[in-house]
Amino acid sequence: KAKLLVLLYAFVATDADTICIGYHANNSTDTVDTILEKNVAVTHSVNLLEDSHNGKLCKLKGIAPLQLGKCNITGWLLGNPECDSLLPARSWSYIVETPNSENGACYPGDLIDYEELREQLSSVSSLERFEIFPKESSWPNHTFNGVTVSCSHRGKSSFYRNLLWLTKKGDSYPKLTNSYVNNKGKEVLVLWGVHHPSSSDEQQSLYSNGNAYVSVASSNYNRRFTPEIAARPKVRDQHGRMNYYWTLLEPGDTIIFEATGNLIAPWYAFALSRGFESGIITSNASMHECNTKCQTPQGAINSNLPFQNIHPVTIGECPKYVRSTKLRMVTGLRNIPSIQYRGLFGAIAGFIEGGWTGMIDGWYGYHHQNEQGSGYAADQKSTQNAINGITNKVNSVIEKMNTQFTAVGKEFNNLEKRMENLNKKVDDGFLDIWTYNAELLVLLENERTLDFHDLNVKNLYEKVKSQLKNNAKEIGNGCFEFYHKCDNECMESVRNGTYDYPKYSEESKLNR
């Protein structure tokens, strides 16, 4: 008799109507990190870190770059004969040098303040090359056809396309004075040089004057150069050297050249137009028929994500570079809930034993079982409120962090190594801060989002509990077992918050 009662009780308990509160689960393989956990499985997430590029040089917003090819900045601007293909260059979106560009200054020497000139050019998007001192009329008392084997072109001695090597005419090199007034309405880049012979005999042979000088002056520039005559090792078949100089001439300003020898005179100059998204990159990537809004030396990035880990040097509207390998923000729920887990921000989770793959029309909802059958029903209101809140948060985070910009490298010469090392340390410090901030932001927001979901499920549970009161009992896994019969209409009233407690209280009292 006792065995019969136990079996009867078990049958009745199993047959009781139930309603459970749960949440969506799926077959997603997404994982995120939080402050407290690593690799948390979630139903949905968004990636904030771009880690792919196309490996190509592309047009930037429809404008092609200027590819210097086998030449570098120095060779292009001075007019190395091997860089003749660059003479027609007028406009570009950015400038590309190759790491091993070999054609710079063909006659050995240095372009002074080269690093600063590169910085200036990094904001130039177009130029006009014009004859600042016409070759045939500007130097009537001097020979202007100086050439050298060091600047050979097609097997013949030649010289820079933008400079003139002035030497004596006959047996004399009379003092020369020439000036140019900038009437271009924009900055003009003027380049010139000073020749330093290897011996007094060479000085006399070329310029006749043993104590020659070169003077260059404008409103913002004033220097006097004296040739340094000295024996030097042979470089590119030359014992002599040429140093090259430049200045930016403001609109309306005048530049005056005065010399008694050794002047490498300007022939062509450049009127410059600035462009905020221009820059110089060093890259071996090849040019393709493609378009982008962000270019790196590795390749083009076409992404609206706020961060990238491809390269710190970028041109155009680019994500911020960070050292992170993963920045994924959760938008959905835990896919593998932890039992009795309390989140960092106070939300209680884990009283549900598992997510439901059968509930596909919402994030949170119900599963019921009664004599009429069983089924899932999503709670659309709480789901939609959660979707709206999380979507707004993700968009806000992306908008705040998605300050796209150009980031170019800084140039230092060989004598500025300590400054370069200090600059690298400062840049590394800023990069570490950006990386830390980005990672911390994602970790915190992921923790908040998961706790937010847990709290929403808990609130749904409490909503049902407050309606049923003692007409049902909690069975410990997020479910309630009714003390009365609850048909589909009754189940719907529980879900929509209109459950009639008094209607079922007498039946429940008897069954309790």
Rank of each mutant, 00 (worst) to 15 (best):
N145T: 08
S123G: 14
E50H: 04
K56P: 01
L263H: 01
I63G: 08
K184P: 03
A64Q: 12
T74W: 00
N54K: 11
V12K: 05
G170P: 00
A271C: 01
P134K: 15
T177E: 11
N26A: 11
L66Y: 11
K184E: 10
V216P: 01
L4W: 07
W76C: 10
P108T: 04
D17H: 06
Y94N: 02
S278V: 12
A212N: 14
A265Y: 05
S138R: 03
N54R: 04
I95K: 02
V124E: 00
A41K: 12
A231H: 09
K59G: 02
I281A: 03
L263F: 08
G75D: 08
N162P: 03
N211Y: 03
W139P: 00
F11A: 09
T177V: 14
V147K: 14
T98Q: 15
G75R: 01
H195Y: 05
G210H: 13
V40E: 07
S179P: 01
T177H: 12
A25K: 01
S123K: 02
T143A: 08
T29Y: 00
T148K: 07
W139M: 11
D30S: 01
Y23Q: 14
L272D: 02
P174T: 06
G146E: 10
H196T: 05
S150H: 11
P227Y: 09
N209K: 12
W92P: 04
Y9H: 04
G279L: 08
A13L: 13
I281G: 00
L121I: 15
A212F: 04
V124R: 00
K184H: 08
I229P: 05
I280P: 02
T34I: 07
T34D: 04
I132A: 11
N141P: 10
D113K: 02
F270C: 04
A259Y: 06
S52Y: 07
L206G: 01
W165Y: 04
N222Y: 15
L5I: 14
R274N: 11
V235C: 05
D33I: 04
I21H: 07
Y114H: 07
L206I: 11
W165K: 03
Y9F: 15
L77T: 02
R224H: 10
D237M: 12
G170A: 12
T143H: 06
I256F: 14
E82Y: 13
N54E: 09
H153A: 15
E97A: 03
W192F: 15
S28T: 15
N26S: 08
A64V: 05
V124H: 02
L7W: 11
V96L: 09
R161N: 04
D33A: 03
D15W: 11
S172T: 14
S179Y: 08
C83Q: 06
N222H: 13
L66C: 08
I264K: 00
H44K: 01
N162G: 02
S278K: 01
T14H: 03
H153W: 08
G79W: 08
L121D: 04
N243T: 04
Y94W: 05
I112G: 01
S278E: 02
N162T: 12
